[in-house]
Computed example of a mutant assay.
Amino acid sequence: MDPNRLAPQHLHAIAAAALPLAAWGVHAALMRRRLDRARRDPLTGLLTRDGFTIAATRLLHQPDTGVVVIDLDGFKQINDTHGHAAGDAVLSHAARALTEWAGDHGVAARLGGDEFAVVRPFEPAWVPVRMGHLAGAFARPAQWQGHSLHYGASAGLARAADLPGRTLETVLAAADAAMYQAKRNGGGWHQHTPSTDLATADRRWRRTRTAA
């Protein structure tokens, strides 16, 4: 049958049948946008812990992938001195730096407060260079109402290939333990080593991060 010669009642029936499909398409698009917003931190635009879990679990199956857990240094002092608006400016500044550093092959997230995480490739030979670039990103101060807000970061790196099982929870716990070691060292970054007590690190991760 020539569609150009359909009777008017047939055309109306086709249009009526198409309406639910079109409405469902709009509804599905809205749901996807709402789900994406729910997985994004409203202040920084970074993934939340839930969104990061999904993305990082997928990326950890790729070769040389690692996770970095970052805790800002000097953030509380900025909040106490200049107020929460200045603190928000620092968090947004850190988020932009981490997004740029993660690049096209990685993802960044805000786990909560001033704690962040990044999953991205870390070829062993390039680890010092990559982590040096991260330190450089935080060396630039955030600007807020004419103030240069200087802050730093303590970062812990764990490569999935160096850990048994390569599960996200294991890699996160190892990166978290490395971050605490960096903080004890006065800042900068520290890489997980096989000698780290992962049982203790995993308990600390579960205890201190479940609300993030």
Rank of each mutant, 00 (worst) to 15 (best):
L172M: 00
H27G: 10
G83S: 08
L198H: 06
T210W: 15
A160P: 03
A89Y: 02
G45A: 04
G113F: 11
A153C: 14
P121W: 06
D104N: 11
F52H: 09
V26K: 04
D2E: 07
G146N: 07
A7W: 13
D50T: 14
Q143C: 11
V68T: 01
L111A: 04
L11M: 09
A135L: 13
A97K: 09
P164W: 01
D114V: 01
R49F: 02
A199P: 05
R49I: 03
H27W: 14
T48D: 10
S154Y: 06
R37K: 14
L91Q: 06
P63A: 01
T196V: 12
G186W: 04
L163D: 04
N185V: 00
P124G: 01
T48K: 06
M179R: 09
G156T: 04
G112E: 10
H84I: 00
L157V: 07
L6Q: 13
R32M: 08
Q181Y: 10
A13E: 12
A16M: 10
R159S: 01
A109W: 00
A160Q: 03
R33G: 04
A201P: 02
V171P: 04
G136H: 06
A95G: 11
A139N: 13
R5C: 10
L157Q: 06
F122W: 07
W205M: 03
T53M: 12
L198N: 01
S92W: 08
W126L: 13
A28R: 15
T196F: 00
D2M: 07
A38D: 08
P128A: 05
S154Q: 09
W144L: 08
L59I: 01
A109R: 01
D162E: 13
G103R: 03
A17F: 07
A160S: 07
I54A: 10
L35R: 15
I14H: 07
K183A: 05
P63W: 05
S148D: 15
G66W: 05
R39H: 14
R166K: 11
A13S: 09
V107P: 06
L30A: 13
P128C: 03
A177L: 00
A153H: 02
P128R: 04
R32D: 14
A55E: 13
T200Q: 14
A135I: 12
R32S: 12
V129C: 02
R32F: 02
A56D: 03
Q145C: 07
Q191R: 15
L111W: 01
E169C: 03
A97E: 08
R159M: 01
